[in-house]
Design a protein around this nucleic acid. Structure first.
Lengths: 234, 234
DNA sequence: CGTGTCATTTTGTGATCACAAAATTCACTT
DNA sequence: AAGTGAATTTTGTGATCACAAAATGACACG
């Protein structure tokens, strides 16, 4: 068996001709692979992550993995323990509370900044994503749900062209995503509710306050209700 | 001549016995060295930073420097260009605006969270730091001013025990510090004003709103007034 | 004197190695 | 059979190497 411990599809294999072989291409691919792995919940909190393991999983040398792990550790998406071991951080009530607070402070602000930049084409795109999300909730596909929910929010946020707030929010998502995945694993996706439709309407009407409210509502719907009690009953 | 391009004191030389030789000790030292270098403005925005250069400056192999540079790039303290070259990002009006906004959102919040944890001993420490700051303003020592101003704010923030908001704020400081250094280089430190004394008073009186106001005032005093016009007149 | 071209040097990247610390396995004792 | 010790494997770290891309400098030509 060549498969190691867990889930990460091998890299595009660097197969035939070129692809985009520029400076640091391998590192970028490794970064993207691990990052989406974290955002879709394919890494379990508390579980150790080894450099050589990921390297062989992805079919590359340990070198780019080392650098990517450092990057993700700097974003608090991973935790380097004193022994040098790297793992997905465990969620604690305090951490959860802070992430929730930070999201509520930053995301509405960035959404508002995106508002003027969002075109009709973006609205169409967001509607399409939201439709897919609804299907995922019905079908119970947690991983696809997480991927699409991320796509929805960041399609809005990216429109702002932000170089400061966006990376901060990026860091936050990387921190809570693995935990949320375990939540969905327990309670299922049926209970999920969001305010994406309210957000889309607010964007259409160019209503800043309505957009802020929708984003804040969406965050509290997604995190505020569920997470707390899970953490407390563990 | 062994000295390379610029300012970074060689590492404690790994001199006599041990110090704290644990896992990743070298990397931590390199990280601390570059980080404080950025926070005190010893790196000039736009100036390229080379791995081998820093490595020889610090007397270590390129290896730990590579990892640290990736970490700092992940925090947006450094910028990796498409050629792979690493440099201190240039400040732009947009970036400046975003950093200011983010600081105003996050720092008062974390200060408030720190309030209950701050003891009389902390107040004494903060007062001592603020006294030193006043001297720096008079003597015009910009580098010491930046170091102490950072020490003041983060002594407050660290008391909160935050694991989420604190790293975000850390990232923000790393982003604007190198630029502010160039500002002080132009206009001097005489014009500097802060609201540290108001903050200390608020801490003493356990006044949450007053502390928020002091922190916000301090931020706008330090950044809001100066930075904008500098950027626009360039 | 400016400009484009070519050779040289520098730089980042990925890979591999050697080593020590840590974790794991396993045999042995009680 | 359970606990304990040593032996073995795994892992992170720092260093070095080879290579290609990029930057730098020299130099010839207009």
């Amino acid at each position: 068996m060549t498969d190691r411990h867990s889930a990460l599809t091998s890299l595009p294999a660097n197969d035939r001709k070129g692809a985009t072989s520029s400076r640091g291409a391998t590192r970028e691919q490794v970064d993207a692979a691990i990052r989406t792995g974290l955002l879709t919940g394919r890494f379990i909190p508390g579980k150790a992550v080894t450099i050589r393991g990921l390297a062989t999983d992805l079919g590359v040398s340990p070198m780019p993995v080392r650098e990517v792990l450092q990057r993700l550790a700097a974003e608090n998406a991973l935790e380097v323990k004193s022994n040098g071991r790297v793992q997905v951080p465990d969620m604690t009530p305090d951490r959860f509370d802070e992430v929730l607070k930070a999201r509520l402070l930053l995301e509405p602000e960035l959404a508002e900044r995106s508002l003027e930049k969002l075109s009709k084409r973006d609205v169409k795109m967001l509607t399409a994503i939201d439709d897919e999300i609804d299907q995922c909730i019905i079908s119970g596909d947690a991983e696809a749900y997480m991927r699409l929910n991320h796509a929805f929010h960041f399609h809005v946020y990216r429109a702002s062209g932000s170089k400061v707030l966006l990376p901060l929010i990026d860091s936050l998502w990387l921190q809570f995503a693995p935990f949320m995945r375990t939540v969905y694993g327990r309670v299922g996706t049926a209970i999920l509710v969001d305010q994406h439709k309210e957000a889309i309407r607010a964007i259409k009407q160019r209503d800043r306050d309505a957009l802020r409210d929708a984003i804040m509502g969406d965050i509290t719907d997604g995190m505020g209700l569920i997470g707390k009690e899970i953490l407390e009953t563990t």
